Amino acid sequence: MSIYKRVLGKEFYHLHPMLQHKYELLSSGTFSGSGVMKKIKGGPKWLYPMFYLGAKWKLLFPESGENIPFTITNTSRCGENGERQVHWERIFYFKGKRRYFNALMSFDQSQNVIKDYLGEPPLFYSDLVLKIDEENRSLRIESKGQRLVFGKREISLPRFLQGLAVINESYSEEKGVFQITVGVKNPLVGWVFYYEGEFKQDELDEN
């Protein structure tokens, strides 16, 4: 059973069948897709040094633009402690360079949340809360309780320093694509990072 199905329980079956397929596949396999991000934008320019630093950890980046090619690869694997993990590799293909927004997720049974380590090696940690919009069978993911990661140490961040994410993912039957919006917002600065677009599972593109 995938970590996402475990955290959602019976509500998992309220997702669109294609979203069920994507997240159930991550119980022991790999999901890969490709598409286009219609819009990518970052925060104010004075944050760019942080973005350049984040790019080295495959986390944030300073570039923005429209109609940027995109690939996603989600791979299920077993961690050193035996827990089931899912590695997220998201690549944005700007002209002459690749930028990443990577994460490693696992399931916290005691709190019934997804543990999300962002960056490689990880720089930030967040609890992820999953919710389902039953009207359009979409998935909403919200980050909570962010911490800064220093090797094996983690330091809780005050809310005014946190960049909390909201992800909305749905499936369009009319277009036959997954649709995604991701926004990271800070209480003081406002939007720090945002992208929206759509993609298809790679296997489906071959037919």
Rank of each mutant, 00 (worst) to 15 (best):
E83G: 08
K185F: 01
G190M: 06
G79N: 11
R90Q: 03
R153F: 08
D108N: 15
P69Y: 05
N74K: 03
G183I: 02
Q109F: 15
E169L: 05
K131S: 15
Y195H: 02
V177L: 14
E89S: 09
N186D: 13
I141E: 08
Y125I: 01
L161D: 02
L104H: 01
D127C: 04
E83N: 15
L104T: 02
E196L: 05
E173T: 07
D202F: 11
I180R: 05
K95Y: 06
S170T: 05
D108A: 12
G79L: 14
Y125R: 00
F199A: 13
W88A: 01
Y171S: 03
R137A: 15
N168I: 11
I155E: 00
F101W: 08
D108P: 13
Y171M: 10
Q162H: 12
V113H: 03
L148K: 00
D116I: 00
V182E: 00
D133C: 15
V149M: 13
E173V: 04
K95S: 08
V192R: 01
F199R: 03
N81I: 13
L118M: 05
N186H: 15
I91W: 04
E66G: 00
L157W: 12
E203P: 10
E80V: 08
L157C: 14
M105Y: 04
K185A: 02
Q179D: 10
E173S: 03
L123E: 00
F178E: 09
V86F: 07
R159L: 15
R99P: 10
E198S: 11
L130I: 02
L164F: 12
K97I: 08
Y93E: 13
G176E: 01
I68T: 01
D202N: 15
S143Q: 07
L157S: 11
V86G: 04
D108V: 14
Q162S: 13
F101K: 04
E120Y: 00
G197E: 06
I72R: 04
Q111P: 12
G183P: 02
T71E: 09
V189L: 11
Y100A: 06
Y195A: 04
L130D: 05
F92W: 01
S156I: 12
K95M: 01
I91G: 01
K185G: 00
